[in-house]
Nucleic acid binder design. Structure first.
Lengths: 318, 318
DNA sequence: GCGAGGTCCTCCGCCCCTCAG
DNA sequence: CTGAGGGGCGGAGGACCTCGC
């Protein structure tokens, strides 16, 4: 393995631009026999899972939400296990476990299995860990491993893109080590919910990192692969910012609508459906935008009650 | 059992107004370590489960949503089982099962476990079935069972509220029979997803019916209970209409925001935060309402493109 | 790389029962 | 009617392996 005069052939450094079928509306099919909640759940699942969360993580989050709902009922029903169980069709024994789990989360700070803000930590934190563990300064060889001769290292570097973060190029083994380390750190941070890095999980994470363009794979003919850090942040799509805004908006919109259902004062729901002439569409949207801002400005007063307004407008469905 | 001169004492006909702890914000606790998606899931769980859906039904719906997301990825990835599995950390074998399940739902019309499909039909349809099976006409005795003497029947009827649907009063046994029948009908309608009426499930449904005020229980001292239909519709809270509107709004708002993320044309997102003086609040909200309608009217044109606008405004969180 | 097949373990959604306060 | 035990079944998430293409 240790390179004598072995010839290192490099395939194109590829950023794994996989064939993505131009089937952008794959996700738009109508769910047969569904209601509004089903639609919302589907939207959530799409956003969650296509941003890199595991399938199981989404299910866990949904289960956690349901457990919290059970806990809320439990409190509302005067801490009556049996009754709560009956209302939700859950075994009283199970209700008790759930209540204890939620309580220990609320008081002792134990963590529930939520999506915990962000993308999976092992994806978000990965670039930072790499930069820390394998720093690189201009002038040094990128390839740290002693498996390669100076000539080989040179050859490898030639094929790398010009603009790379200041991080070393590492071997497959080192990559696995990094992932291992990441999980250990992550587990240290949250003592419950211990994750073990199974082979299956490792492969999943590697594919996510490659597919998102965070990591770049350099194939060496016959002797495995090297890996380079391509970006300092994990970002599955460049729409990231917009996706976050969307989810925040939806969550807060939901909260407001719930207040509206509960007939809280000072909450207004607006719903307008109408038809607009195509040629006046832009004009209309622009006028609305200006109008709203003017309205908010007009009534704004620094020491007043903080208010928030959410709005979305677009073509009607069907 | 068959009544001779047995004295039938009735406890107060009770509509089971159970003690509800004035802990209306039980459901408002902050989820530790959560993100927007977690909040949305929690809102969904609360609404789903407090409207009578089973705990397991919500989980099933979430699982179905995740399966659909997997199917979407599968299509996007050019029908590559292994890759899809890797991306979402699911066994390829499992992916295959999921794909087949979704496909047979889309093509053969097999039903997925959505909330709509399992919409507590057994709650919604129950009053109608009762009316059909045990009709009652003014003048007849309400109590059909031959277990009771005319005097006893009279005694029972005196205790009933004045305004009841035109349905007979039935025994516990007949109630169970009704539930049984309901499940059979429901299963006939959807050959997959067979539900069996276990004792636990029966108790769950009965409590839901009582707790929602759909059914009324009349306790006979020592000799079991009778049941009367109190309303012709199942409505857990009187907020039902508003809840539906909310969920529809949120789902459609979500759809529009998704279009905004994808930078579709003609989609506008609006977000305004500002402070308003308490004394001008009402004025401001009213002006906004009027302004929006005027705006929609101004640009409306019968043969134009159908557009929809969603808005919610209220106090900011915290 | 891909699909197809098999095996294992564990958790948990459900089902039922009893008994003491 | 409540809590607190008991026992049991089945499905499915998760992980592992080999084989043939």
């Amino acid at each position: 393995m240790q390179g004598a005069n072995r010839i290192v052939f490099l395939s194109m450094a590829k950023q794994l631009q996989h064939v993505v079928i131009p089937c952008a509306d794959a996700r738009l099919f109508k769910i047969p026999n569904s209601c509004a909640i089903d639609q919302i759940l589907y939207q959530l699942a799409l956003n969650t899972m296509s941003s890199g969360h595991r399938y199981g993580a989404f299910l866990d989050a949904a289960i956690t939400a349901a457990k919290l709902a059970i806990y809320a009922t439990y409190l509302e029903q005067g801490k009556n296990l049996r009754r709560t169980g009956l209302l939700h069709h859950v075994e009283p024994k199970r209700v008790k476990e759930i209540v204890q789990e939620v309580q220990s989360a609320l008081t002792e700070g134990k963590l529930l299995k939520t999506l915990a803000s962000e993308e999976p930590k092992y994806l978000i934190c990965f670039p930072h860990l790499w930069l820390k563990q394998y720093p690189w300064n201009p002038g040094q060889p990128r390839v740290g491993s002693s498996e390669f001769s100076a000539a080989e290292k040179n050859q490898i570097e030639k094929i790398l893109p010009a603009q790379l973060p200041n991080a070393g190029v590492i071997t497959a083994f080192q990559l696995t080590e990094l992932l291992q380390l990441l999980l250990v750190e992550s587990n240290k941070h949250s003592p419950s919910n211990q994750i073990v890095l199974s082979e299956a999980l490792e492969e999943h994470i590697k594919l996510r990192l490659l597919e998102s363009g965070t990591v770049m794979q350099i194939e060496l003919m016959g002797v495995g692969s090297l890996y380079a850090l391509a970006r300092t942040t994990y970002s599955p799509k460049d729409k990231r910012e917009r996706v976050y805004s969307m989810l925040d908006d939806v969550a807060d919109f939901f909260r407001l609508m719930q207040s509206w259902v509960d007939e809280q004062p000072d909450v207004l729901r607006g719903l307008e459906t109408f038809n607009v002439a195509p040629e006046r569409k832009q004009e209309a949207l622009q006028e609305l935008d200006v109008m709203l801002q003017a309205w908010a400005d007009k009534y704004h007063q620094d020491d007043g009650l903080p208010m928030v307004l959410h709005m979305a407008i677009g073509p009607e469905e069907e």
